[in-house]
Amino acid sequence: MLEIRDLHVKFHNRDREAVAGISLTIDDGEIVGLVGESGSGKSVTAMSIAGLLPRKQCDLSGDILLDGEDLLHAPRSALRQIHGRRIGVVFQEPMSAMDPLMRVGEQVGEVLRIHTGLTPAQRKKKVLEVLSAVELADPEGVYNKYPHELSGGMLQRAMIAAAIVIQPSLLLLDEPTTALDVTIQAQILELLKKLNAEKGISMLFISHNLNVVRKLCKRVAVMQRGLLVESGDTKDVFFHPQHPYTRRLIEAIPTRHGKETV
C-alpha cells in the first residue's frame, strides 16, 4: 500500500544528502520497523512520507506512492486531504507535540473536524470511543483535560487516539516510546499490536532501539547515513545480520545481565 522508490532528500544548508536513495514498501496490515542512529535519515524519511518537510529548503526526488497515489510531488492542497485522514502520525514527545492550550478531547477530535462533516456531538462520541479504544481509563475525564494535566504515557495514548480516530490506512510512529519509561513503553507496544490486529492499520515504526522493534515488527529496515543497509524479516536480520553496521547495532542491545545503555 505504501511504496517508496529511490527517495532522495537533500537540505540546502547541508552538504550530505539526508536520505540518499532508499526504497521500501509496506503491505496492507503490516508493521515495518525502520532503525538507525540519530542522523541516519530515518526521521527525514518519515517526515517526507507525512509531507512535513519544508519544501522550499530541500531538494526531493524519487517517488512515494500511497495506494498508487503520488505523495512527494502532490500539491499542498491535495496533501492536506491525505494528512490525518489516510496517514496518521505519532511523534516522539507527546508533551510538546500537543497544543498546550487546547483540551485533549478537542485535539483528538481535530482530525474529524477537518476531514468529516460530523456535528460536535457526533465528534465527541467518536473521540470518547477512540479514547477508550486506546485503553485510557475515564475517557470523559481525559477529554476535558489539558495536556499538562496528563502523564506522558496517557498523553501518548491520546496522541495515538488522535492519529487513528478516523481510521487511517497508515500510521507513522516516529520514536513514539523513546520519551517514556520502560513499563509504559511495553504497554504502548502492546496497544499498537492490538490496534494493528483489530483494525488492520499498517504501521511504519521508527526507532533507534532494536529491542523495541523486535517486539513489534515483522519486517525491519536498517538505515545508516541516509542509505538502507539491510532489510528483511526481523528474525533473519537479528539472527543473521549481513551488514557490519547491523551487527554493531545488535551488539549494542543490552542483554538480560548487562546494563541498559542508550
Binding site: A50, L52, I87, F91, S96, A97, D99, V111
Partner: peptide, 26 residues
C-alpha cells in the same frame, strides 16, 4: 517552530488554520 505545529499540520490543517486555531492563542 514548536512541535505542536508539526502535529497540527500532520492532521491536515492548512497554514491559516494552524495560525488561527493553535499559534495565535499560544
Amino acid at each position: 517552530q514548536k512541535a505542536y505545529v508539526r502535529t497540527a499540520i500532520s492532521r491536515g490543517n492548512d497554514r491559516r488554520a494552524v495560525l488561527n486555531r493553535h499559534v495565535l492563542k499560544n
